[in-house]
Design a protein around this nucleic acid. Structure first.
Lengths: 247, 247
DNA sequence: TTAACATCCTGCGAAAACGCAGGTTTCCAG
DNA sequence: CTGGAAACCTGCGTTTTCGCAGGATGTTAA
């Protein structure tokens, strides 16, 4: 638990709360609760009671859904400005879990305040609606890729999704996230061995390189080209879901 | 092109437009355009220009996304009260196509009117937001199932998705939709042969029966039980995404 | 520095999925 | 009613994926 940042002076420019009126931003500043979750900690425990929604101020999160055989699937990756934890209308418990992939600053807002904010800030509601609409499009693209791709292509798609969500470090061209092979496998729906095999293939082609868990992207264009037949032009520039202005 | 139904007297009780003020329902009644699409016709052509969104008054639609190898994936099924065609903010063209599976009455609303309605009808915007939120949850569940299930389980999941979206006819317990084996394969990410094989297995177990394209569900509980390890309690009662009141 | 542990890589046999081909059934137009 | 086309079912050889196992590499803490 930390000092509560005032929304107006929050460094995260992608937060949809910025679309609320100044009065409502004050109100939300008072009502929300900022918590710093250490790496690896659950932000949302699967099947726990829904109390509200989470806004990532700064951090990296994976949204997971496990089956009763113990296998865990990562259904979404989220970063600064993303919302996690669909509001609990029609659901009493969260159907998904969320795990911090790094130390993350995350604001919690209770259902009641959030609902009232929606009713009085149409621009805010609109932005959140568009966020869901974009995430739906991305999820449908993922579902299509899982359904049609072979293993190697799935791993490539996973890399592009990771780049899209977390970005690439300027200095060494490595993806801004450290995940185990098994965690990458959980994102793309395969197993750790297949991820290793795909990496070996891509390293042989000098498209990527790996130093432990850091993945360096040597040739982005070639990486995209390998799965380009599955993508629309708009999919290659998805560059993370952000809250942009309407046209 | 047909007589334009007035929203207030529209027989579809699940349309989110019902959450607009009476004045706005009048305005939308005048602005919208009701078209009856015959079975098999494209409602949205993939990559065509975005002009607005579609609301299904009465009908059945599949949302598809094809890759450049020609393989078509059905990413969503939609029925009465569902929205199709994400609004075109940030996209100039539809990333998906939509096909009528039966003769369908569908209302079109242009982006400008829709955006203005969102700004002035918070309940309407909220309902559409919740629609996307639920569809996102369902899409993430589908993605997880595609990633983890074997062929037989995928086909079972496809059947449950079809039941969930289109329902079962009371008189003979058949699913309210007629799809070719290949179309079912396109929903669950496999091929027509595998669908036939899975059906043969389920018929042998007396769980389903088929008469041509009609699929009779003999034992719903057993069908769900076969894939229950992938589902949450809330997933087995999804019973179609509808526009329900907030808590 | 070193030992113990976790993660990663890769070969290989087993299992699953693919996809063609050929026979059967269904559908539709004349 | 009939003939032709389309859809469906199923056997079978091929390809892909799975997943164990064993060795290599990296990590951590004393």
């Amino acid at each position: 638990m930390q000092f509560n940042v005032i929304c107006q002076s929050c460094p995260n420019k992608n937060c949809p709360v910025k679309y609320c009126s100044p009065e409502w931003q004050d109100k939300i500043s008072n009502q929300k609760n900022l918590v710093i979750y250490p790496k690896g900690q659950y932000v949302i425990v699967e099947d726990s009671l829904v109390m509200g929604a989470f806004f990532i101020q700064e951090g990296k999160v994976k949204v997971v859904s496990s089956n009763f055989r113990g296998k865990e699937q990562t259904v979404r990756l989220a970063s600064n400005g993303h919302m996690v934890g669909h509001m609990g209308i029609g659901h009493e418990t969260y159907p998904i879990g969320a795990v911090a992939l790094e130390d993350s600053k995350i604001c919690f807002l209770d259902n009641k305040t959030l609902y009232d904010a929606f009713m009085e800030n149409p621009q805010f509601t609109f932005q959140v609606m568009m966020f869901y609409s974009r995430e739906l499009r991305k999820s449908e693209l993922r579902a299509k890729c899982f359904a049609q791709m072979n293993n190697e292509e799935k791993v490539i798609f996973g890399l592009i999704y990771m780049i899209d969500t977390f970005g690439i470090a300027q200095e060494d061209q490595t993806i801004n996230i450290s995940l185990a092979r098994q965690e990458i496998a959980d994102i793309v729906g395969t197993n750790a061995e297949q991820v290793s095999r795909a990496f070996a293939f891509l390293k042989g082609k000098k498209i990527i390189d790996t130093k432990e868990k850091r993945i360096q992207i040597i040739n982005t264009n070639e990486l995209i080209r390998l799965i380009t037949c599955y993508l629309k032009p708009s999919d290659t520039t998805i560059v993370s879901t952000q809250f942009t202005s309407p046209q």
